[in-house]
């Protein structure tokens, strides 16, 4: 390296070497400190999960929607659907949620732990089956059958219903579509318990 007599040239020569080195150092640490989040995203299924999906031919969060003759929209969504091991042509859905909505906006919400799609358009709902209607009716039963084509629901067992006036116990229940809205029919011996003073205060 040439030597210079005056201070200025020596400083310049020194900087000519030091500055690039500093730049190099900054540049290299840049990638060291860069945040890793974006890189290397794995698909959200573990290898075991993938094998199970393939083995059971499981479809995860499928949904179905259709329209009934009266123009009500029927939708069904579930966590996962897989063929029934015993009878492969029938499917079993887990944590099923269904809605039936009339053009006027009256809604029925159905939920059940499992739903099995037997023949035709019937869906057998079992496991903590609940039906709620926008008119404030809540029906609970162990099993219900939803006909997804006509949007009708029938319970295959005793039901308890919490309704605006009080509480209804009945042996069976069917929900069908009347002329201007849903009709809930409780049969097989029903009992309504009504508390007159409830809500008198408000």
């Amino acid at each position: 390296m040439a030597t210079f007599d005056n201070r200025h040239s020596r400083q310049v020569a020194l900087l000519k070497v030091a500055l690039p080195l500093i730049a190099l150092a900054i540049l290299s640490t840049l990638f060291l400190l860069a945040d890793r989040r974006g890189s290397g995203d794995r698909i959200p299924y573990s290898q075991l999960e993938l094998d199970r999906i393939v083995a059971e031919q499981r479809i995860s969060n499928p949904n179905y929607s259709g329209v009934t003759p009266e123009g009500d929209a029927v939708t069904l969504a579930s966590g996962s659907v897989r063929p029934d091991p015993e009878s492969p042509e029938e499917m079993i859905a887990s944590d099923l949620i269904g809605t039936i909505e009339t053009p006027k906006g009256e809604r029925i919400l159905l939920s059940a732990e499992t739903g099995s799609f037997r023949s035709g358009s019937d869906v057998n709902l079992t496991g903590d089956v609940r039906l709620r209607s926008s008119a404030g009716y809540r029906v609970e039963s162990d099993g219900m059958v939803l006909d997804a084509e006509t949007g009708t629901v029938s319970s295959d067992g005793a039901i308890t219903a919490i309704v605006p006036p009080g509480r209804i116990d009945a042996a069976a229940m069917t929900l069908t579509r009347g002329a201007d809205g849903f009709v809930l029919r409780f049969t097989g011996g029903t009992k309504l318990l009504y508390y007159p003073d409830a809500g008198k205060g408000d």
């Binding site: 006027k104 008119a135 009347g178 409780f186 009992k191 318990l193």
Partner: peptide
């Protein structure tokens, strides 16, 4: 007092 209505069938028109 609570009123209890028992019957063979009960039909409720939602609308």
């Amino acid at each position: 007092q609570p009123v209890e209505v028992a019957s063979d069938a009960l039909e409720v028109n939602q609308s």
